[in-house]
């Protein structure tokens, strides 16, 4: 199991921050997921080894945090907030639009593997609602039309890279 150079560097650096190996777990899982796409069995085994835990303990932790997943997802994970501030500003319409446009429901991935959709909780964009995060990028003050454009941009970006 190999991770990228920046990952290894960060891991090494972070290892010096804590008195226990275990403390590396949560951030390391997230960075590993960003590289591999999801927390595969192989990743779980590798990280368990690195932080000196059993795989069971690592899985216990993974399943607790909503950003971590052991299932493959699309290249772009569209996370639509529908919590109160976004709800009041039309967050559900944005979610409906995403469903329609991508042809999938929450926790599903488009057949081309480009998008997955998720309904998420408050992401700290209440004053700029409704908001969506695509992977780590915030998109705020959305309308269904703007959402369409954003998805189009990602489609373009994703297919271009692939070519």
């Amino acid at each position: 199991m190999r991770f990228s150079e920046p990952f290894e560097q960060r891991f090494q650096e972070m290892a010096s921050h804590y008195p226990t190996r275990r403390s590396l777990l949560v951030p390391t899982l997230l960075y590993a997921q960003d590289e591999v796409g999801f927390l595969s069995d192989e990743v779980v085994a590798e990280i368990a080894r690195r932080v000196e835990l059993t795989e069971l303990e690592v899985r216990n932790v993974i399943s607790y945090y909503s950003m971590l997943t052991t299932q493959p997802r699309g290249k772009y994970n569209v996370q639509v907030c529908t919590n109160i501030a976004c709800l009041l500003m039309g967050g559900e319409e944005i979610l409906d639009r995403c469903r329609l446009k991508l042809g999938i429901r929450e926790k599903e991935t488009t057949p081309d593997g480009l998008f997955s959709l998720e309904e998420v909780e408050c992401m700290g964009a209440c004053c700029w609602a409704p908001a969506v995060q695509v992977n780590y990028d915030f998109h705020e003050h959305l309308t269904p039309q703007k959402m369409d454009q954003i998805l189009d941009q990602y489609t373009k970006k994703g297919t271009e890279r692939r070519r």
Binding site: L56, R59, S63, Y64
Partner: peptide
């Protein structure tokens, strides 16, 4: 330590 708690 064969049992754990998962999900939330």
């Amino acid at each position: 330590w064969a049992l754990g708690v998962q999900h939330r």
